[in-house]
Design a protein around this nucleic acid. Sequence first.
DNA 1: ATATTGACATTTA
DNA 2: ATAAATGCCAATA
Length: 99
Amino acid sequence: MSIREKCYRIICKIPKGRVSTYKEVAESLGIKGYRAIGMILKKNPKPIEIPCHRVVKSNGEVGGYMGGIERKIELLRKEGISIKNNKIVNFERYFFKIK
DNA sequence: ATATTGACATTTA
DNA sequence: ATAAATGCCAATA
């Protein structure tokens, strides 16, 4: 299987209302290039089935989103996560440690 | 807080 | 098939 498939699998493990970081995902995949994750998610084959909006940057910033950052923020808010100036409020509280 | 450098799968030419 | 460019980043010279 490709890194890409693993990537999706990992992301799908993130429970609703929780978020994780690109770094975490990358390490869970066994790679160190967290940017590769961004590429994979950008060309996301199934943007609806894959909750890529639950993956954010390590410092709590939302990062980007292929469908528009605003969209991502809204999705996260619907899951009970507050966002302020593109940054998650109480980020550590929602952080989901993979593995 | 800004700039620079590092790291890597995927995409595009 | 090969090389160069891209990106939802992270750590720090």
